[in-house]
């Protein structure tokens, strides 16, 4: 599966059961990236996409377990460590900000298992610079 996450400068993802931030341009980029492929997410994440999603979206609380090979998972409020072996590719959006966090992105991308394939910056609707990194398993 291809996992999509968004983090702050300290690997944070959530604080007090709420996403640290959101941006409509980031959502557009995700949908552009996913294209016609299947996108898995849970009800919490579906909440911020509701008016923008098409039929290739699957909502389930165990969405990470259900996602198959080359299918996308947008993960906001889960630890990913236990799923690392199944992740073929990671798309990491960085807010380039520091927010409070109590749930962090917990895959070590500095390990030999991962290699950055590309990085690009774009302007968000409410963020000056969002960085998109694509990491592939070595």
């Amino acid at each position: 599966m291809i996992v999509i996450v968004a983090t702050d400068d300290k690997q944070g993802m959530m604080f007090n059961n709420r996403r640290q931030s959101k941006d409509s341009e980031l959502r557009k980029d995700i949908l552009c990236e996913v294209g016609k492929c299947k996108l898995w997410l849970n009800a919490y994440s579906f909440g911020q996409f509701e008016e923008e999603l098409e039929k290739n979206v699957c909502v389930a609380e165990d969405f990470v377990d259900k996602a198959g090979a080359r299918e996308y998972c947008f993960v906001e409020n889960l630890s990913l460590q236990e799923y690392e072996e199944r992740i073929e590719e990671l798309i990491l959006y960085k807010w380039n900000r520091v927010y409070p966090s109590d749930l962090k992105f917990d895959i070590d991308l500095s390990s030999e298992s991962w290699q950055m394939a590309s990085t690009v910056d774009f302007v968000g609707s409410s963020h000056d610079k969002i960085t998109k990194e694509v990491w592939k398993r070595v």
């Binding site: 931030s21 409509s24 900000r97």
Partner: peptide
């Protein structure tokens, strides 16, 4: 303080 301010500011702007 700044991380909390950032979070609020970006939420309001978004």
């Amino acid at each position: 303080m700044l991380p909390f301010e950032n979070m609020v500011a970006d939420y309001v702007k978004e």
